[in-house]
Nucleic acid binder design. Sequence first.
DNA 1: GTCTATACTTCGATAGAC
DNA 2: GTCTATCGAAGTATAGAC
Lengths: 208, 208
Amino acid sequence: MPRELRTAISELALADRILPVAAAMFRRLGYARTSTRELANRLGIQTGSLYHYIRGKEDLLFQICSSALTHIEEAVRKATAGVPVERKLEVAIKRHLISALTDSDSHATMLMELRALSAERKAAVIRQRDQYEELIRTIIEESQAAGVVRADIEAKYLTLSLLNMLNWSIFWFDPDGPLTENELATVMTTVFLDGASAKRRGPASRLE
Amino acid sequence: MPRELRTAISELALADRILPVAAAMFRRLGYARTSTRELANRLGIQTGSLYHYIRGKEDLLFQICSSALTHIEEAVRKATAGVPVERKLEVAIKRHLISALTDSDSHATMLMELRALSAERKAAVIRQRDQYEELIRTIIEESQAAGVVRADIEAKYLTLSLLNMLNWSIFWFDPDGPLTENELATVMTTVFLDGASAKRRGPASRLE
DNA sequence: GTCTATACTTCGATAGAC
DNA sequence: GTCTATCGAAGTATAGAC
């Protein structure tokens, strides 16, 4: 989470601080090792008071996972609506990365702590995740049909390879580092679409 | 872990079953939620007996993380030694994927549960991980110097993008699914080197 | 080398006063 | 809406018999 957002949390009402603070702790320590005592402590209240806002610790995890997926799906869907097929995938990649890196505590938690949910809630989050994957896969299939993306690899594996590359970057991207989110998005768009090979490069590089 | 290996574990001596069984549980439940009681149960012994073999639960996590990295580094180093620079990166990608997918419980644990280690042991594993990353980055830098890999993106980011793509596949690759480890390695080599774009494809596709 | 028994800690959640 | 106090469950690890 960027610094401006981080400090802003301390000015929110208690009820609105719970989820982001929990997400930051889940990301850092993991769900299982994050105690409600320590969470309450960071919120400046006692453990008992926390249960005025939530029914159980698992509620927090579920809401974090679910809203992370809701937000990224909505962001990518809106950003790509009406975009011509030649540029749709690029736009989706950039929007995905921006969304995941901006809301990185929630996304990291969703990616790493999903298994801590109860069976039913885990299934619900996995359905959401599959639905988002389908959005990306559909964009790739449209791109293949339009001749923009290679068709000799199944859309399923192109989608998974792409999401691998994008999602894992949450765990090493440094918002205060040398690359902005936009620049990383450009790098990954270039790698995914044009490849790392030096051969057969066209004249219009994405990097210039 | 492939089925042949899975069944073979039950025929090992107790001392040799502890780490693989622990790795499978850590992967499935996470380190924090894996109890020594249940681990002992799966090994067919009592909790107390486990402490004849280990000094503490954390020992298991450390050994799993450390040996996963030792093995993959050795495998990639050996496989790429003496290979001409034009093919070195391809060989490294394939060997990395085969190693990670074969030893997937350990690798998944290393990737997801590292933060559960004590500060000193975590630092030691991170050093090992950085060293392995450096091996891959060096191969990419050599490839750039030889004109095989594009030089307009820093080797650092090419390395991270590649490792993102390769590592995360542990979490969805199905050894009993339609693709073999080798086929997935071919797909990812192609995506990473040639890109997903349909434009400017050369005549010698890796997929034929 | 494996067992039983248990000491000690920490946790999630609740009860009930204010 | 926040507090204090505490219950009951579960965990890691150890002690000591066999």
